[in-house]
Amino acid sequence: MSNEFNRADAARMAAEWRYIITDMICRAGSGHIGGALSLVEIMHTLYYRSMTVDPANPKWEKRDRLVLSKGHAAPVLYVALAYKGFFPANLLGTMNANGTTLPSHADARTVPGIDVTTGSLGQGLSVACGMARAAQSKREKHTVFCIIGDGESNEGQNWEAAMFAAHNKLDNIVAITDYNKLQIDGFTDDILSLEPLTDKWRAFGWEVFEADGHDWDDVYTKIEAAKAVRGKPAMIIAHTIKAKGCSVVENTAGSHNVKVGDQAAYDLYMGALELETMDLPY
């Protein structure tokens, strides 16, 4: 699939995704814009280059799996799944509306293409371990991807799972840390420092890569290298910018969850994007 990649098309789609994500959150009145926008290039690379999936058959046994452990970034996953055709794109406009099937946090119960329900931080990597262990016992060859947040990495359960994955040689796991250096209360270095993060994962027995999470080639190259690791799980520390592409809140802790109470706020966020306008699918 990689030879079909067109950088200009990808960049155009990334701009559209950022426009739609921001619009969805603004329409809902609030939402986790920062951690969704920091994942756009990574999510695009997963669904358009690195993962094998079948939108017509979301439960296809041979598909690659994705656990979005930082479930509050669900808007970027919803947009990716809609673009891939897992569900009609007009549903995107219903996020967080009463009775919606697209809640603020990733929900496998109601959204075709989502493999695991997440939202309470720290649990997704454990679930990915169970999925990978099941694949190991069934001699299946697919990859289980898992995206965790940097703030989420404060949760001790991640490190239980880190030990479990290495001990069980779960080389079918490719984890990605969305290292945007910010959590709700401030910079990760000020709240609960993760450093030295790559050393930590290496010490836990993982193969570790670092990538610029907004560089198309770097993200793709490191994901492919991580997939090829044998005998141990792989972690990609992806250096990203929180709320990337929405200049008024880029790289701020406040972007974790924005409140959009009126037209002026809507105009502020939408006007801070690369794309000035587009035809929304809803």
């Binding site: 493999d115 679930v127 169970g130 239980e160």
Partner: peptide, 28 residues
């Protein structure tokens, strides 16, 4: 032995691993 998984003294991870096994059709 193939059906036995020991998570160590890590009960939170044990429940998560159980959930992941169940997602893939196992009965943990």
């Amino acid at each position: 032995p193939e059906n036995f998984v020991n998570a160590g003294v890590a009960e939170a991870n044990m429940i998560g691993v159980g959930a992941g096994l169940a997602v893939e059709g196992k009965i943990p």
